[in-house]
């Protein structure tokens, strides 16, 4: 059985996985606390105020101010959570894209039912694409007459990334909505036809991880999977060279 998975969250393999898990644990801690308090109070009442133990019920229409304490605490906690945890983390993971020079840039194109990775190659430029050139050997319709496309690397269902360098990925879809999901990276983003959606993450663990599709995309949705292979920078460079057409 794969060591990355168990009962509970998968292993953390991206730079922000720990942050996201931190807020998951914090929130679940608070949820369990609230539930336990509710449950104890309820069980106490059910025993203490059974008809047998209680006699005549208390007639009152008063709502003392103290009864609003749970609501107020909830509100204060949530406002703190939004402004001091939620907004900074969301800004970090979704709005602060790493610089292009220091990151690995690539495109991922989703279709029923495969992920196609498109690296710009050694020249750092993505070749031109033409939908009319799409066929089984050329899933992206790369135009061979464009010099930029000659060294481009196309890899189906296998995403190679170097360790310790942020990946800056532009997601697009050929047909329907898919969702790019790598559990170990805590990364999930819908891939929408007609849109180019930028995402980023930084792998922090060597090894193989799983890409799943998280948005129903048709009859093959369940088998639309790929692999992420995180390599040392040297291995990644070797892989890039081995894939480059010479």
């Amino acid at each position: 059985m794969n060591q990355n998975y168990g009962w509970g969250l998968p292993v953390q393999a991206s730079s922000y996985a720990g942050k996201l898990d931190g807020s998951l644990f914090l929130l679940h801690g608070v949820m369990i606390l609230i539930f336990v308090l509710w449950a104890f109070y309820m069980i106490f009442c059910l025993i203490r105020y059974r008809q047998k133990n209680s006699g005549r019920a208390l007639y009152s229409h008063k709502t003392p101010l103290s009864s609003y304490i749970p609501d107020a605490l909830m509100l204060i906690f949530e406002i703190w959570l939004i402004f001091f945890v939620g907004i900074p983390i969301w800004a970090h993971i979704r709005e602060e894209l790493p610089k292009e020079e220091t990151s690995v840039a690539l495109h991922i194109v989703a279709e029923q039912f495969a992920w196609t990775m498109h690296y710009p190659g050694l020249d750092g430029k993505f070749g031109k694409q033409n939908p009319s050139l799409i066929n089984a050997d050329n899933p992206l319709g790369l135009d061979e007459n464009d010099p930029d496309s000659l060294d481009d690397i196309v890899s189906v269902n296998e995403l190679h990334l170097p360790l310790g360098k942020p990946a800056r990925i532009l997601l697009s879809s050929k047909d329907v909505i898919h969702s790019f999901f790598v559990p170990e990276f805590r990364m999930k983003q819908d891939v929408v036809p007609g849109m180019n959606i930028p995402i980023w993450f930084e792998p922090t663990k060597l090894g193989a991880f799983e890409i799943g599709c998280a948005q129903l995309c048709g009859t093959g949705h369940y088998r639309m999977r790929g692999d992420v292979i995180v390599q040392s920078p040297e291995e990644f460079e070797n892989w890039t060279k081995s894939k480059t057409k010479s």
Partner: peptide, 29 residues
């Protein structure tokens, strides 16, 4: 995110009122 978190407050208020209704009651199961 803000509106969604806020909408949990009236739900908590309702649950709190229901639970406090048990206090001082003469509960028939």
């Amino acid at each position: 995110m803000t509106t969604t978190m806020i909408i949990s407050v009236p739900s908590v208020a309702i649950i709190t009122c229901f639970l406090l209704s048990l206090k001082g009651a003469s509960i028939q199961f």
